[in-house]
């Protein structure tokens, strides 16, 4: 049984006093490959941001087991790429270097070792040839690879990705998800991604967390969670609307 990395108990998440999801019980083990699925607006990103510590839980708690005692879990966060401002004239390498910022103290600038790690991360995501290319001139799939490289450059214990294939064509989607699968298989990186696409979950996730129509979270192995009766139950309200 792999060691626990993060554990949520009776967790409620939302904005202000409004709970979007409630009563969440979820354990993420080291080496996990978990896909979180739910329709747009169901609270996937809210849950992800709560795990990342960007939002406070409305109730319940999250316990973490970082690899260094007394430390904190090192997150590699990959936001939705549309959230980044393309007016900033940054190269792929400069974006990837941001992953090193947490490892440097205040007022310390990235050095040659940080650049070496950032370039290695770009190589892992097969973006090293475009290291000097302006980030804003990259395709959607290439941008996503740079953002994954940025997360990897932080040498994280867990990668958390928010809609990593949103708006991509089938080939780009496959390339990104295969990259994540490789990272998980070769480096045993813990991967959690959220998506609204059933096909992505069906093809790539090992375990699945399903957000139901009434704001609950069902978690289990993929075969179990994608059984027609479970999906029908989870999306009962949506089905009635159809």
């Amino acid at each position: 049984m792999p060691a626990e990395l993060l554990k949520a108990e009776k967790l409620s998440v939302g904005y202000g006093r409004h709970a979007v999801l409630h009563g969440i019980d979820l354990t993420i083990a080291r080496g996990d490959f978990l896909g979180v699925m739910g329709p747009n607006g169901a609270g996937k990103t809210t849950m992800l941001k709560t795990f990342l510590g960007l939002l406070k839980p409305l109730s319940g708690r999250i316990t973490a087991a970082p690899s260094s005692p007394g430390g904190r879990v090192l997150f590699g966060y990959v936001p939705q790429r549309e959230s980044l401002d393309l007016h900033y004239p940054l190269t792929s390498l400069e974006v990837a270097l941001m992953g090193r910022y947490g490892r440097l103290g205040p007022f310390r600038r990235p050095g040659p070792e940080d650049e070496r790690i950032a370039r290695a991360a770009l190589r892992q995501t097969r973006m090293d040839a475009l290291a000097e290319r302006p980030y804003r001139k990259l395709s959607g799939g290439q941008k996503q690879r740079v953002l994954i490289a940025r997360a990897l450059a932080s040498e994280p214990e867990i990668l958390l990705l928010d809609e990593p294939t949103n708006g991509m064509d089938v080939n780009s989607e496959r390339a990104i998800m295969e990259l994540l699968t490789e990272l998980q298989a070769e480096k045993k990186t813990t991967v959690v991604f959220v998506t609204h696409l059933l096909s992505t979950i069906e093809t790539y996730a090992r375990r699945v967390a399903l957000i139901t129509f009434d704001g609950k979270l069902l978690v289990g192995e993929k075969a179990e969670m994608l059984a027609p009766e479970v999906l029908a139950g989870a999306y009962k309200k949506n089905n009635k609307n159809l």
């Binding site: 990342l52 980044l84 941001m98 992953g99 910022y101 947490g102 007022f107 990235p110």
Partner: peptide, 22 residues
Amino acid sequence: YLASKEFLISAYDPDMGRTLGV
């Protein structure tokens, strides 16, 4: 000059900055 990385990440991607401990 010295705080350029802090000023950059705080403006460009504050959520990423927070997860990195900035």
